[in-house]
Every structure is written in structure tokens, then in C-alpha cells.
Write a protein that binds this DNA or RNA. Structure first.
Lengths: 260, 260
DNA sequence: CAGTGGTCTAGACCACTCG
DNA sequence: GAGTGGTCTAGACCACTGA
């Protein structure tokens, strides 16, 4: 999964081909899949390489394998990028809607509080604060209050934060935003929430606090996002006895309905 | 993943040993992990076998690997059963605390509304409603309003709903509670919430709506749970480039702190 | 029984990281 | 440049499935 500059490897090419064949219907859902021996000949590859490609498809939930049997093509699992959970813009686009943003404030400040939250917090001497109102199809949906470690915050000062996804920009700059922990709860809207999200002060908002770290656990970002609860929610799907994948989570835009 | 009757295979033994070593602190979080070459010698195994064990740990989110670098031990992804997300009792016990419950109402009614929620709803002629106040170490934490399909609701009438986990009871009865979708948002506390959770009416509560289905997608339960947000929250951990597991979610009890 | 996937071995080359 | 993980090969034995 780690992306390298060089061209795709063989097992990735094989996996891509097979994935396409499943989507094309060459291997129908519930039907059978070629045996490893066949694939070895078809792709002129060693069995290990073929197995690596098959492992990829298994981890994506596209096929199911067991000993003695041919692989079985599974129910199409809503293909959804993990990036959708990191990036508001990516999430909104995945819903077929249009993301937007209005920067309220961007500032570089000396970090004062040693620790604001037991979740974690950037520990550089200076931090960069960004406050933005996020829109879905033009509707105010979320207020984002992010704090970046100075190492990546510096690059942010050169970025037009009204233009799009900070996350995607930073990834493009090579930032190691690898892991995140989100904590979700509910609080009362403060004055800023009320004004920008156009709700009553004190009304409930969905709060998502997030700490993003590098793979080596250096805290790179802390963010506190307040969602207008009638326009966004978090959806978690899971199943018992499923081999590998435990939980899939995605923010799902609320429908206009529910006029109770 | 598939369990066979025979004894564990070598790569599973290796993975188990390494997993235990991580938990024991032999390989501290953020620290380094033995190289493949070392493990090959230590376990007298071929490199492929060692790599298979390592792949397992990666898929569990325990370590992160990349080319040229030694593996890095990840943030402890609180080894946690998926049941913890289905069952409040199981979740609370996993936190080392004591779950409790006080039944407010249990009733069997003719189902009136055809569909209450676009999430899904039991479609039997009669349904069983249960309303319970859930406690953590004696503190009111959540109100649970569940609606069961008559097929499993019947068995519930014979169960002392003050005695423990409905979910665990039903599983013991052979109920096929296999898949669930949770939708999380925030709403204002209603009169019942206010009284039982001991909060102001209109103050924010965390709402979790859940639909539980069998593997064949028959809706068996619909539940709307209201959490007191200072006593419970939902925690989601995820990482980019991890092969299989996309998201881990767990409800985490809030600490007493936060006196802003 | 033949065919299949699961496991394991022993070697090789390469891309990358770090001192 | 030494060490590391990512990729690939070629072969082997075994456990299980299904006709």
C-alpha cells in the first residue's frame, strides 16, 4: 500500500486486473474464480506472487477462500477509501456532493498550554491555528478548529486555505499523516458555532476531536470539529464473524427529511 | 483466519509470540521491532513464514512497516472484541468498570408505523419494546430504547432485563445478530433523558441509532441510545496504509476531568 | 481420486533508510 | 555501504473439497 515512485509491481498489476474482471462481471458474484494454477499460467508469475495478489483481494473483501475450494466472489463491499475519513473534502465528494470552505482565521502562535487534551497535542514551540467553516453544497455543515505542529504548519501559511483540502495538500507535500484517533461526543453550540452554523446557541452539535500522528507517533495535528447534527452524522458498519475487517466507518450526510 | 481442527501453524505461533511480546512491553510502543533476519534465526523458520506472521500483526494494526526501516510498534490498538461494540455490558467490563441497568419499560405491541427510520426497522406484526437506563459504576450513562422483532422479542419476555446484557442473552439463545449499522449524531435531551440521565432538558446528548440484522439482512432489532456525553464517547482509530483493517471503533468512557 | 488452497523452504535481486 | 523490508521465483508437502 505504501506508494513508491517506481512503476507498479507485478502482484499489484495482477490484483488490479482481477479486480477489474470482477467489476466487469467476468467473474460474477457468487460464482467461481480461477484457481491459482490457472492464474500462474495466465500471468506468467510464480505462485507466491499470485497468492499475494489474491491476498489483496481477500483483504478488500472481494473474494473468499478456503482450503480445497476455489475462491468465491463476494458481495460487492462498498468500495470506500480510508482517505474519506481523514478528509472532509474527500468524504463530501464521495457522496456526490460539493465541498466548500471559508477560512475564518489562520495564525501562527507560541504554544501556551502544555496539554490541552489527553488525546495528544502538537509539542512544537509554535503551532499554526486554522479555523474554517466547511460547507456541503453551499450549506454550512461543520466548523473545523485545527492546530498543526510547526513543522507542517509552516507549509500551510503558503496554502490558500479557501481553495480546498488541507489534508490532501499536506499529503502532497509529503507530510506523514498516517494515523488518527477520533473521539466523538456531543456538546452545546458556542457563540461561534451558533453564528456560523446558523443554529441556536446551546443547541446540540456533534463534536469530533481528532489527533493525527505520523507512524512513529509524533503528534502532527489536533483538531476539534463541530458538526451541525442535522447535516452530518457518523455511520459505522460492522459484523461479527467476519474474517479480517472489523469496522467500517464513514461520515454520512443526513438527508433533508426528519421534520419531527 | 479460517480455523482448522489441527494444531496451530508455525506462522500463527510466531505471530502469537510476537503479539504477546508487544503486550508484555518487550517491544515498547513507538520503539523498534526485530528485523526479519533476526526473527528467522530466533524461530528457525524461513523468511516467508516470518513475513506471514508479520503480515498478521500488520493487519491487526500492531506494527507498521516500510522499506529500509525496521518495523515500528504502533499505538496499542486496545485489543478489543467486536462484541464490545454490540454490547454495552461487554464494553463497560472491557473498561474495567461495572455495568448496570434499570428497566423502565418492557412491552409487546402491534407495530404501527410502517417505517420509523430509513436505517431499517423490524417488520413483524408485533414488536417488543424495551426501555432501560444503563449505568456505569452506578452512574446513569445511557438510555436505551430498543425494538425487537417478534421472533426474538418473545424470548425476551422470559428474560430478567434487569439482570444483564440482552445481547449476550440473545446470542446464547442462538439469535443471529450478525451485522449492525450505527449512526451517530447529537440531539437535545428530551424529558425522559433529562430525568433519568440527570441533565437539563434540551442539553446535548449523543444519539446512537442502531439496526441489527442477521447475515441475510433480516432486521432483528432497532435501537436508539442516548448517551450522556460527559460519561461516554465513541473512539475511532484508523491508519492509512494499513492493508486490511480500516477502522477500529470503541466506545470509551470519558474521564471525570474536563472542568472547563 | 484429482484438484485446490494453506503452509513452508531456500534462495535471489532490488529500493530504500540510516549512520 | 551495511542493513532492512518489498518483491519474485521454484519447488515441496499437506489438508481439504468434490465428483
Amino acid at each position: 500500500m505504501t506508494t513508491y515512485s517506481s512503476e507498479p509491481t507485478k502482484h499489484i498489476l495482477i490484483a488490479d486486473t482481477l479486480r477489474r474482471d470482477i467489476e466487469n462481471g467476468r467473474y460474477p458474484v457468487g460464482g467461481e474464480f480461477p484457481s491459482e494454477a490457472v492464474l500462474v499460467k495466465e500471468f506468467q508469475a510464480a505462485r507466491g506472487t499470485v497468492r499475494q495478489a489474491i491476498a489483496t483481494l481477500k483483504s478488500e473483501g472481494l473474494i473468499h477462500t478456503s482450503r480445497g475450494r476455489r475462491p468465491i466472489v463476494q458481495n460487492r463491499p462498498l468500495a470506500q477509501s480510508i482517505d474519506d475519513f481523514f478528509s472532509f473534502s474527500s468524504w463530501v465528494r464521495a457522496q456526490g456532493k460539493t465541498p466548500g470552505q471559508k477560512t475564518i482565521e489562520i495564525a501562527r502562535r507560541r504554544r501556551l498550554q502544555p496539554v490541552q487534551d489527553d488525546l495528544g497535542y502538537p509539542d512544537s514551540e509554535f503551532v499554526v491555528h486554522v479555523v474554517r467553516l466547511r460547507l456541503v453544497d453551499g450549506l454550512p455543515t461543520m466548523i473545523e478548529r485545527s492546530t498543526f505542529d510547526d513543522s507542517i504548519g509552516q507549509e500551510l501559511m503558503t496554502f490558500d486555505t479557501d481553495s480546498g483540502s488541507i489534508f490532501e495538500f499536506l499529503i502532497g507535500q509529503g507530510a506523514e499523516l498516517d494515523e488518527a484517533t477520533h473521539v466523538v461526543d456531543a456538546i452545546a453550540a458556542d457563540a461561534l458555532d451558533a453564528e456560523l452554523l446558523e443554529v441556536e446557541q446551546g443547541s446540540p452539535v456533534l463534536r469530533v476531536r481528532r489527533v493525527t500522528t505520523s507512524a512513529s507517533q509524533k503528534v502532527l495535528e489536533y483538531s476539534e470539529d463541530h458538526y451541525r447534527p442535522d447535516r452530518a452524522s457518523i455511520r459505522i458498519q460492522n459484523s461479527r464473524h467476519s474474517t479480517a475487517p472489523l469496522v467500517r466507518a464513514s461520515r454520512a450526510a443526513a438527508e433533508p427529511s426528519s421534520a419531527s
